[in-house]
Amino acid sequence: MKTVFVQPDRCVGCKQCEVACAVEHSQSKNLYQAVFESPKPKPRIFVGPGIYLNSSFPNKCRHCNPAPCMAVCPTSAIKRTEDNEIVLIDGDKCINCAMCAMVCPFDVIRYYNSIEAIRKRVVALKCDHCVARQQDGLEPACVEVCKVSALLFGDINELAQKASSKLARIVSEIDTAVSKEPLHLPDHLEAWRSWGKSASKLAKK
């Protein structure tokens, strides 16, 4: 199974993944046209702040198994693909009830007018792991634009075999696809992060 791994310590909060995701889910698939589309394409990955300045985290659907969103969907609009275990939302079936948002502990479902629903009505939107791109042999749009390797795309087993490589650390956290182990950061980055930490702690003094 291929999935997107997150290495949070590497995220610099540039939000390029959000832009790429929105463009990928637009009608034109072109940034300069996408911004003029109606409805405006929306990202399904959300780079939010940490509790300290200079920290951030790219938050997206983990395609949980079992998926709580899928269990509570009152119209069976949320389904799992059989082949590559992606949890998908069928916009035509979604009634915009937000049951899924209530039970998603990662808070990655949003509601917007969508080209994927009849009458472009408001429906639940979330990461689809770029199903269409994957069929063309491409990696998800967010991974492609991430220049700091905060987002990686790969096969769990392949990654496990690369135990000696720098990717090894994330393998032990496969269950949630998020690395919890702090990475060793270069000194100048450590300085950048620690400024954020000290500045944020001041507020509570």
């Binding site: 995220c11 610099v12 909060g13 540039c14 939000k15 939010g48 300045l53 700091v148 980055l189 950048w192």
Partner: peptide, 13 residues
């Protein structure tokens, strides 16, 4: 400010 966070790391570096 909170709405801007996280601010872009490339830019702030």
């Amino acid at each position: 400010l909170t709405r801007q966070e996280p601010q872009c790391g490339y830019c702030s570096l």
